[in-house]
Every structure is written in structure tokens, then in C-alpha cells.
């Protein structure tokens, strides 16, 4: 009897694993099969036409890549600074540390739609309005959804991932190096920037990779903060709106008047989004590996 239970359990867990694999294959397979049908050079390089039943999705690709880059530019340096505070300066028993720690942990669990609303209220309506009042004498420039605010909102969303990853790498740098540096008369700041951080670059890049993976696929945070339904031209100013692949997929799915005409486009768009996320990841991983090689040269 015990043996029977034992066997059954093995079969059960194996079956669960196979099912997961199967689901993944069905999704990827389905997307790859239907997604490549309509895929062409034109689809990747042209703008949507005829009420999104023809043409391409270049503005959405451009917007997504730009968004992710801007987001990384904000999230990575900021996250590294917080991680340095956590790993190098904070005393574990201090109140500031306990509160910020709790904040970071909870930030990671907030639903992404809430970040979207936060971005609208905080970045667009508060910061944006303040900038307009101060620099544009009240004219509407920054107090509206834009790629800048969408990137900032996305940065807040991905910040916990960056902080936690970088912090762990910083903590993993052996104490020996810090002691050796301090014993040579280096200041703590010099020690952090010349010895500790250079060894943690791969962690910083891992943080960036995770942030990019998360950021490229999320739609909810950019919904109210900058993504546009359709734009005839590409964003060229931080206060411009932008098209976003994920949002475009949602638009194609729910807002189409001609389902049969949009379906192939929808498939191809999904395929492009998956490939793009994959490519962004690969790029970051290649950069990280290159950095590792430099580090141990």
C-alpha cells in the first residue's frame, strides 16, 4: 500500500510537470505558428493603417524599446543607490532600515494596476503639474500622460527587483576585500566604488535584466500614464505619448471592428512582443557575461 502511494505520487508530480511543459509548448507553438504567417519586413517597419487592419507595428516596437530603456536608466542607478545603503551603510537595528526594508518588500507585492494609478496621480498630476507651473507658466506640457511618466512609473514597479538583486550581490562580495581596502587608508566610499561595486556589476546587470523582463511585458502601469491608442508619429520629446506593444495587443483584441482582419495582425504582434522581450534579455545577458570576463581578466 505504501509503495502504491509512493508510486502514485511520483506519477502525479511527473504529470504536473508534463502539463506545465505542454502548456508552454502550446502557447509558444501557437504564437510562432500563427504569428509568423503575416510577419514581414513591412509589418515590423511600418505604422498601422486602415483602422489597424493593415500596415505594421513599428511605432509600438519603438515605443516599447524606448520605454524599457528609459525605465532602466531610472530604475538601475536609483536601485543601486538604495542597495548600497542597505548592504553597506544601514545598521539592521535602525528604524530607517526596518521601514525602508518593509517598504521595498511590500512594493514588490503591489498589483501593477495600482502602480498605474499611482503614476497618474503622482507623476502626471503632481510632478507634471508642478513642472508646468514652474517652467511653462501653466501651459499643459508635462501634466499629461507621456513616455517619461510611463517610464518613471514602470521604474517604480521594477525597483524592488533591482534593489534586492543588487543588494544580494553586494553582500556576497567577501569581507576580505573591504578590509584590505580600508586597511590601505581608503575611505568607505572609495572602498564601495573601487572594490565592492566593480565586483557586483554582474548583479547590477542581472537586476537590469529582471527589470527589463518585467517592464517589457507589463501593460497596466502605462495604461494611464503614457500609452496611446494610436499615434501617427514617433515620440520625439519626453512629454510625448507613445505606442506600446502590450497595449496595442489589448487594443487589437478588444477594440477591433473587423475581427477576422485583425486576428493575423494580433498574432504577429504577440509574436513580436515575445521575441522582443527575449532579445532584450539576451542583450543584457551578453553584456553581463562580457563584464564578467572583464572582471576576472
Amino acid at each position: 500500500m505504501r509503495k502504491f502511494v509512493d508510486r502514485t505520487f511520483v506519477v502525479l508530480s511527473l504529470a504536473a510537470t508534463v502539463i506545465i511543459l505542454a502548456i508552454l509548448f502550446v502557447i509558444i507553438g501557437n504564437i510562432a505558428y500563427h504569428g509568423t504567417e503575416r510577419l514581414s519586413w513591412e509589418f515590423i517597419t511600418a505604422a498601422p493603417e486602415s483602422g489597424m487592419t493593415a500596415g505594421g507595428i513599428f511605432p509600438a516596437i519603438y515605443g516599447t524599446v524606448l520605454l524599457v530603456l528609459l525605465m532602466s536608466l531610472a530604475a538601475v542607478p536609483f536601485g543601486v543607490l538604495v542597495a548600497i545603503y542597505f548592504a553597506e551603510y544601514a545598521r539592521p537595528e535602525s528604524r530607517l532600515y526596518r521601514w525602508t526594508r518593509m517598504a521595498v518588500n511590500n512594493l514588490a507585492g503591489v498589483p501593477s494596476i495600482v502602480f498605474g494609478l499611482f503614476g497618474l496621480g503622482f507623476f502626471v498630476q503632481s510632478i507634471g503639474k508642478a513642472i508646468d507651473r514652474a517652467a511653462y507658466s501653466g501651459r499643459l506640457v508635462y501634466a499629461q500622460p507621456s513616455i517619461l511618466w510611463a517610464a518613471m512609473t514602470m521604474a517604480v514597479l521594477t525597483l524592488p527587483v533591482v534593489i534586492i538583486t543588487v543588494e544580494e550581490t553586494l553582500r556576497a562580495v567577501p569581507r576580505d576585500y573591504r578590509e584590505a581596502s580600508l586597511a590601505l587608508g581608503a575611505t568607505k566610499l572609495q572602498t564601495i566604488f573601487r572594490v565592492v561595486l566593480p565586483q557586483a556589476w554582474s548583479g547590477v546587470m542581472t537586476g537590469a535584466i529582471l527589470a527589463i523582463s518585467r517592464g517589457a511585458g507589463e501593460v497596466a502601469p502605462v495604461l494611464f500614464t503614457g500609452a496611446a491608442y494610436f499615434l501617427p508619429r514617433l515620440p520625439s520629446h519626453p512629454a510625448d505619448q507613445f505606442m506600446h506593444l502590450g497595449y496595442h495587443i489589448w487594443v487589437l483584441t478588444t477594440q477591433s471592428t473587423n475581427v477576422e482582419a485583425t486576428k493575423p495582425l494580433l498574432y504577429s504582434t504577440v509574436f513580436v512582443l515575445v521575441v522582443l522581450t527575449f532579445l532584450l534579455n539576451i542583450t543584457a545577458i551578453l553584456i553581463r557575461n562580457r563584464m564578467r570576463k572583464w572582471a576576472v581578466r
Partner: peptide
């Protein structure tokens, strides 16, 4: 007052940069 540790702990940089480290930071 310099210090030599039990476990040798050169920084993961070139020998030159290791020796130059203290000179540079100071």
C-alpha cells in the same frame, strides 16, 4: 599602520593596480 591578512586577498584586478590602489585612493 598597514595590515597583512591571514588569507591573501589581492583585489581582482591586475598586479599593478593592486599595488597602485593605496597610492591612488590616498
Amino acid at each position: 599602520v598597514g595590515m597583512i591578512f591571514q588569507k591573501s586577498n589581492p583585489f581582482p584586478m591586475s598586479s599593478y593596480d593592486n599595488v597602485a590602489y593605496g597610492v591612488r585612493v590616498n
